[in-house]
Design a protein around this nucleic acid. Structure first.
Length: 812
RNA sequence: GGGCUCGUGGUCUAGCGGCUAUGACAUCACCCUUACAAGGUGGAGGUCGGGUGUUCAAAUCACCCCGGGCCCACCA
């Protein structure tokens, strides 16, 4: 039972990764009677080659929770997943393999995607999750493009259609001209830019007067369907109801009034086009205006724009401006700051195009969803507000169809003759309508398959159902639902959390999970978000290579939930120091357990009992913190006890008992028993955070021992540290029933205070710590300190101790 | 423009009505002490972003302001 002089993290990591996998220690046991703790794991996109420290922190943070719950005696259901469905995979395959999806059929393209994502996922599991020591049950692995996930998605779709919560409608939708697909509100991000505001003169139809409107998008002139002014704007009052002629395109539109017009912006007169922006859509609906769609799906103008047909809108804008210039219609131009919506993946400004799409109702469920949000416990609490704000501010139903190649197909057909929408039976699922022919049940004519696929969130929002095997194993699912915990980051509260809560509400009339944990968000040292494109990403594998997994995880353990954490490499040093200290302290303990046969001391020395009581208290507090996912606080408490109470004080105190042959053997046994108990307990408390080093030490500690003892004496009746296990990670959490009695506490504290005073005295006088001194203690403390005297004398190197009025230390 | 959140020694962090404001890293001094110099002991370093108020008492509560971050709205 010895440890090597230096801790070799690489060796130890390699060994235990292999061993844990071999023994399958994280396997979920469906027959166990323990309470289930199920985690709705965020499945990462596996398309990125490697991941930065922020991602690694995120996944490790809730992995620590999984370990805590496992050790606390829960039957942990912790499935790994990959999100390999949708745009990122499609893009990755197109770019990496240089495949043009337009020239490949969907089945073939999907095959390539599947093969490619499988490759990346294998690499990812090995290089990231397993490397970080993550305790997933790999038997439960799921992917979002798997037939099972597709079946879940399509089944949910059919059920929602049946319920009336899912419908198809021709609507103006947010459109990405680059990806050529509809987007949900949640997929739109802000893009700030400077643009030109042009003041353009329009002719009135019935008079020589001219009016001027200001617009940033003159290329939308052919789509102009109305002019609006504010009802209180005196300048324009008399013009309301009159008609104007749209320059260049010569069609006539009416001047109308609407309260949303800002009198101060531009000329206070705005044109409404179908569709330049959101407010255009509102007015178009509100006033039932004409529809003049001028955009094609790729962002070029169509034939309604006359000679500009086929030209991209940016280009058309220039040409139209030149044309207007020629007609001397431009009064002036000015630069303005503008924020436009853009596609969250490619940053292309979005357009609004009218198409037929599938939707899920959200607007009519707002109130219920907020109620659901309240049934869930949010960590930290304030993150719930984000969910509520988002829900309250929703302006659109959720559009779930996407005009993409790769993804879960929408399982419907349309009759070419009577337009009947045909759905499959649930038992046919999963199905790709492109590959399956259907006849119209009404008129038996040929049908056209739907070519759209689902929004990826349509699948992700059923992650609880996919992960806990809703269709595959209904009995298991029933035991699991609602799941215990959803860990995720705050930037996808409006998507993943929102849609999951929505789905669960609509499908099952309940919450999807009992708790949500919003993980820490990592920023670069300057406080900016990390990304590959910004070039400020710090890669996790490089950090792990340099410091080791436990040190990285130790850093993860310092993060607190819901707040941002700046990554500063020098902060990893703290972890390195801790590991070294833990290793060395363990070496010391092992040295002195050499001939220890797990004998139980007849009676514990009082200072040992005091330490065990404090240890009990530590376990109690740390467990409380861990249960609230306050990993940082738990870790700090454990570490503080370990470093100061255990190493600095206690180990010094017992050295005399361990080395000094003249002292009674009982005292040594008491010390041996205590250090073994304390070390085992501390290892268990730290195991969720630093699983490798704790396992290594734990195994050495148990190597020669058949069983660990439980203290069984009058004063400390039941300190239980559990029996040894094949792994610390499946071992029992330390239990305690030891209460600190007040006189023992007082005495123990007095002891450490005296020790600290003596050290201060020696340091002040430039004395070595072994220098012998004379110690005078107060008479008041005599009764309390008597039982500790031998230990106190030994650790302070007091040649003599006397009791008198005042406390003092003197040289001898 | 609205909401949320944060602002504590050089850096990071605890405290969220009441002892001299916690701890870590860095820094300085001393100590090679039989597990550990990747250690120990001690010191220096803070008007707790600013202001006003509530209170016997404010880092902590309220209001305002300044500064950072995030989310949303606006987007003619």
């Amino acid at each position: 039972m010895t440890l090597t002089e230096n801790y070799d993290h690489k060796e130890v990591e390699k060994k235990w990764i292999k061993e844990w996998e071999k023994q399958d220690i994280y396997k979920f046991n469906p027959t166990s009677k323990k309470p289930i703790f199920s985690i709705d794991t965020p499945p990462p996109y596996a398309s990125a080659g490697h991941l930065h420290v922020g991602h690694a922190l995120h996944y490790t943070q809730f992995e620590i929770v999984a370990r805590v719950m496992r050790q606390l005696g829960m039957n942990v259901y912790f499935p790994p997943g990959f999100d390999d469905n949708g745009l990122p995979t499609e893009k990755y395959v197109e770019e990496k393999l240089n495949i043009n999806k337009a020239k490949t059929n969907r089945a073939r393209f999907r095959e390539i995607c599947l093969k490619e994502s499988k490759k990346v996922e294998d690499l990812y599991s090995k290089n990231v999750f397993k490397r970080l020591g993550h305790s997933y049950d790999w038997n439960l692995l799921y992917t979002t493009i798997s037939p099972e996930a597709q079946k879940v998605t399509q089944t949910v779709f059919l059920k929602l259609v049946k319920k009336g919560d899912c419908y198809r409608k021709e609507e103006p939708t947010i459109w990405c001209p680059h990806h050529e697909t509809a987007l949900a509100q949640a997929e739109v991000e802000d893009l700030k830019r400077t643009t030109k505001l042009s003041y353009i003169n329009f002719d009135m139809k019935d008079s020589k007067e001219k009016i001027t409107i200001a617009t940033t998008r003159p290329e939308f002139l052919p789509a102009c369907v109305g002019i609006f002014v504010h009802p209180d704007d005196k300048k324009y009052k008399k013009l309301i109801g009159k008609e104007v002629i749209v320059p260049l395109f010569k069609h006539k539109v009416k001047i109308m009034e609407d309260e949303t017009v800002d009198k101060e912006f531009g000329t206070g007169m705005m044109m409404t086009c179908t569709f330049g922006d959101n407010s255009d859509i509102e007015k178009w609906k509100k006033y039932k205006l004409e529809l003049r769609s001028i955009l094609n799906k790729d962002g070029t103008l169509n034939k309604l724009s006359g000679k500009y047909e086929g030209i991209k809108s940016e280009q058309a804008r220039k040409q139209i401006m030149e044309e207007l210039e020629k007609e001397k219609r431009i009064k002036k131009q000015e630069n303005i700051q503008q924020t436009v919506g853009s596609c969250w993946r490619c940053n292309t400004p979005v357009e609004y195009i009218i198409t037929k799409q599938w939707f899920i109702k959200t607007l009519c469920h707002k109130e219920d969803l907020i109620k659901r949000g309240n049934e869930i416990k949010w960590y930290p609490e304030f993150m719930k507000t984000r969910f509520e704000d988002w829900t309250n501010n929703l302006g659109w139903d959720w559009i779930i169809s996407r005009q993409r190649y790769y993804g879960v197909p929408i399982p419907v057909w349309y009759c070419e003759k009577c337009n009947q929408v045909i759905f499959p039976e649930e038992k046919e699922l999963p199905v790709d309508p492109i590959e399956t022919e259907k006849k119209c049940p009404k008129c038996s004519k040929k049908t056209k398959p739907e070519t759209d696929v689902f929004d990826t969130w349509m699948t992700s929002s059923n992650s609880p159902e996919i992960a806990s095997q809703w269709l595959k194993n209904p009995a298991l699912y029933k035991r699991m639902a609602p799941m215990s915990l959803r860990p995720q980051s705050h930037d996808i509260i409006r998507t993943w959390a929102f849609y999951t809560i929505l789905k669960s509400h609509l499908l099952f009339d309940r919450i999807p999970w009992k708790e949500v944990m919003i993980c820490t968000y990592v920023l670069d040292p300057k406080g900016k978000g990390m990304s590959k494109s910004k070039g400020n990403a710090v890669w996790a594998d490089e950090i792990i290579e340099k410091y080791g997994v436990d040190i990285f995880r130790y850093w993860v353990g310092t993060a607190s939930l819901g707040s941002d954490l700046l990554f500063k490499e020098q902060e990893l040093i703290a972890g390195r120091k801790f590991l070294t200290k833990l290793w060395n302290a363990s070496r010391f303990v092992f040295m002195h357990l050499k001939n220890y046969k797990d004998e139980k001391p007849k009676k514990l020395e009082l200072i040992d009992e005091y330490m065990l009581c404090r240890l009990s208290k530590l376990v109690e507090f740390a467990t409380k913190k861990y249960r609230k996912y306050d990993i940082a606080e738990a870790k700090k408490m454990v570490e503080n006890f370990f470093w100061h109470d255990f190493c600095d004080n206690y180990l010094e105190i017992i050295k005399d008992r361990l080395y000094n042959e003249e002292r009674k053997k009982e005292g040594k046994i008491s010390a041996q028993h205590t250090i073994k108990t304390i070390l085992t307990t501390l290892l268990k408390l730290m195991a969720p955070i630093t699983p490798f080093i704790t396992e290594e030490i734990y195994q050495h500690l148990n190597q020669c021992e058949e069983k660990l003892s439980t203290v069984d004496c009058k004063s400390t009746p039941a300190y239980k540290i559990g029996s040894p296990c094949k792994s610390i990670h499946t071992s029992e959490w330390p239990k305690l029933m030891v209460k600190l009695n007040s006189s023992l506490e007082e005495a123990g504290q007095m002891f450490t205070e005296i020790l600290s005073e003596v050290r201060k005295y020696k340091a002040k006088n430039n004395l070595s710590m072994k220098t012998e001194i004379g110690l005078t203690l107060t008479k008041k403390s005599q009764a309390l300190l008597m039982p500790f005297l031998e230990d106190l004398q030994a650790v302070t190197k007091a040649k003599e101790i006397v009791f008198n009025e005042k406390f003092s230390i003197k040289k001898i």
